[in-house]
Design a protein around this nucleic acid. Structure first.
Lengths: 204, 204
DNA sequence: TGTACATCAGTGAACGCGCGTTCACTGATGTAC
DNA sequence: TGTACATCAGTGAACGCGCGTTCACTGATGTAC
């Protein structure tokens, strides 16, 4: 019986030598373990069995919280899109500069690798999941909004293209950095790098 | 014994009902099968056994041509980078416009999905392979060269950043399109789309 | 306050699968003489 | 032109593995009365 840390009835954290039958917050624990596994080794390296072992639970337990592996990835991606949306919103409300929102997209990708690497892999996800769709649309709106604000009076098609160009640039930079295809690039200050790259966009 | 098509001694193509002991060009056949499998289902879906079966050979045969699975992926990526280099070179020599080279990058990604989806996945490759490195560097030079030509007199750092910005944009657009994250985008004329997106770069 | 009971969240064994790799082998090819 | 032989490119059986999922089950929890 492994030593484990749990929240007891009185609400205080206690370390016992016998694991309780119920985990306490297995769903949360699995999500966090999944994110850190993906960050360390990529989505392909994730196995439900290893995850269960890691959080100290039998390998069949995850089924009670996520229907299957795609369900787990979908929950990770949904949380990731919500996080991205919230962070971009905060930046936008703070500075009102689209440039800062774009820089933050890259920042998010690097600081939340475990989320980002799952979010744009539709083959891993239940694309039909309504929560996922809502979260995706919310995050996308946080790119469109600032772009639109910067070009009042433009037609929809033009806003759409400008958003796509901006998104392509930040997504491409994030992807190239994360995948290790830019070994020579100095990552001391990724925000500054993103800022310099985005300076090449006419939109900002 | 399966029916198979082979090149006989006289050099003519002939269909026989007994498979010859030697395949003829197993290496080529495996590469092509790999590319089309990746294009259809992604790199994760590729198995050496399935590939061997597909080209009508025992499942241990591929080892004689590629050390292992990473070796096969590395060969695919190398060929892909060489192809990309050659195609971009042709465009550059024809029009001399960086814009056209960038548009072709996206065109290549869409028309050679099976290559592109392997090329930027270092975790699948033998990064130390000298052929792969040569091919990667060659392709990268075909982005840098045109960018440099467009800004004679700029310092190296500035050229480097401009290249990174352009590459990020075309790579991001290609990635978003390929991964299915732009379901609403009209793909009737992807070259025109890429052209409109790239118009947002100051560089071009 | 106590008890019955439905529901929830775990367990652990088992199923069935496909995979990459290794191995001893054999058939085919091409080169030296 | 013929032959010996090294090398190359296949075969097919076997190994050992980890995986997702299913299943009958049990312990814990919380709610109705």
């Amino acid at each position: 019986v492994p030593t484990s840390t749990a929240i007891d009835a009185s609400g205080t954290t206690t370390t016992t030598s016998t694991a309780p039958y119920h985990h306490g917050d297995l769903r949360r624990a699995l999500l966090e373990a999944a994110v850190s596994t993906v960050a360390a080794s990529g989505p392909a390296a994730l196995s439900l069995r290893a995850l269960a072992a890691q959080v100290g639970v039998s390998h069949a337990a995850p089924v009670h919280h996520f229907k299957d592996k795609a369900g787990l990835f979908t929950a990770v991606a949904t949380e990731g899109f919500d996080l991205l949306h919230d962070e971009m919103t905060a930046v936008w409300e703070k500075t009102g500069q689209f440039l800062d929102v774009g820089v933050h997209y890259v920042h998010f990708a690097l600081s939340h690798k475990g989320y980002f690497e799952v979010m744009f892999r539709p083959e891993l996800l239940d694309q039909d999941d309504p929560d996922l769709q809502r979260a995706q649309e919310g995050a996308y709106a946080m790119l469109t909004g600032p772009v639109e604000a910067g070009r009042r009076g433009s037609d929809a098609q033009s806003v759409h293209l400008a958003t796509l160009a901006s998104w392509s640039t930040v997504h491409g930079l994030a992807t190239l950095l994360l995948s290790g295809n830019l070994p020579d690039v100095d990552l001391e200050d990724p925000d500054a790098l993103a800022r310099h790259v985005l300076a090449h966009l006419r939109v900002v």
